[in-house]
Amino acid sequence: MATTPPAADGLGELMLAVTRRLRRGTAHALTPLGITPHHARALRVVERDGPMRLGRLAEALHVAPRTVTDVVDHLTESGWVERSPDPADRRATVIDVTAAGRMMAAEVEQVRRAASREIFAGLSKGDRAHLERILRDLVG
């Protein structure tokens, strides 16, 4: 007996369910490292994009500037980023990743990849390649 393909709105729900499962798995795996997904994401942005003002980080994270202040405070207290005067404007500060932050960002990346592998491990190599192609097409 043939199965009918899911409706487009069903696909969206399935995608959200997979995304939630991936987020939960990643959050659980990050717990032993002492970093939350929100802090990990901010650290990854600073590590990837280099020194920046808090406003730029807030834009990259799509959050309000006041929200990013608390995140940066935590990252600073943890020793993963440091604040310094902005060379272009003495009144402003920039944040940059520290050596410890680079190490943490690398660990976070390993955790993220492992969580992803675990989620998709049940798919055949061909199915994973097919899904990756579809998702790349959707991302555009």
Score class of each variant (00 low, 15 high):
Asp137Trp: 07
Glu13Gln: 07
Val68Asp: 00
Gly140Lys: 12
Pro87Asp: 04
Arg48Tyr: 10
Ala106Cys: 04
Ala92Asn: 13
Ala60Cys: 07
Thr67Asn: 11
His28Met: 11
Leu22Ala: 09
Met103Ile: 11
Val68Lys: 00
Val139Arg: 15
Arg20Gln: 12
Arg53Tyr: 00
Gly10Ile: 00
Ala114Lys: 09
Pro5Lys: 02
Glu77Val: 04
Thr67Phe: 06
Ala121Glu: 10
Ala64Leu: 08
Glu107Trp: 06
Asp73Asn: 11
Leu75Asp: 00
Ala29Trp: 02
Asp49Gln: 14
Glu118Tyr: 06
His28Pro: 00
Ala8Lys: 05
Asp86Cys: 09
Gly10Gln: 03
Trp80Lys: 05
Pro65Met: 05
Arg44Asn: 10
His130Gln: 12
Val97Ser: 11
Glu132Trp: 11
Asp127His: 04
Gly12Ile: 04
Asp70Arg: 15
Asp9Lys: 02
His38Thr: 15
Leu123Phe: 12
Arg136Trp: 07
Thr98Met: 04
Asp89Leu: 08
Glu118Ile: 06
Gln110Ile: 11
Leu54Lys: 05
Leu75Phe: 02
Leu54Glu: 03
Thr3Gly: 10
Asp73Ile: 09
Met103Ser: 13
His130Ser: 12
Arg113Gln: 06
Ala2Asn: 10
Gly126Val: 10
Ala64Gln: 14
Thr19Leu: 14
Pro51Lys: 13
Trp80Tyr: 15
Met1Glu: 04
Arg117Lys: 07
Gly34Val: 02
Glu77Tyr: 08
Gly79Phe: 10
Asp137Glu: 13
Arg136Pro: 03
His74Phe: 02
Arg136Asp: 14
Gly122Thr: 10
Pro5Val: 03
Asp96Thr: 15
Thr93Val: 14
Leu54Met: 05
Leu75Glu: 01
Arg112Tyr: 03
Arg113Pro: 02
Arg24Lys: 12
Ala92Val: 09
Leu138Ala: 11
